[in-house]
Amino acid sequence: MPLSRIELLQGTLDMIVLQSLRWGPRHGYGLVQMIRTNSRGVLQVDTGSLYPALHRLEREGSIDASWEVSENRQRVRVYRLTPFGRKRLAAERSRWEQLSDAIAGIFTPPLQEET
């Protein structure tokens, strides 16, 4: 079973979106596909969360958007990371690493405290 959507909300989702855009500009549908593939199908991004997140990030200046024509001659809105977004991603990432270390610490506590 994939992770619950609720745990992907906001903070985490922002980070995932920013990280995915590091590999190059992408449209919304492409991001959904990419996140699913890169997480080996574990993370199912809900569009109801993705689009609000994209537009929120666009508004705060972390990403930029422009209309382009895809290889299928489809008019698509493509998002790319801005320098500000890069900085934000770094900050998000270090916060995430702290959190994930802390949680890992809880699951594998140092031995001396167990005795």
Partner: peptide, 17 residues
Amino acid sequence: NDLDDEIRAHLDMATRD
């Protein structure tokens, strides 16, 4: 209007795939 277009493009691409 842009938002409508963007959602429509998303649905189109998903359908095509």
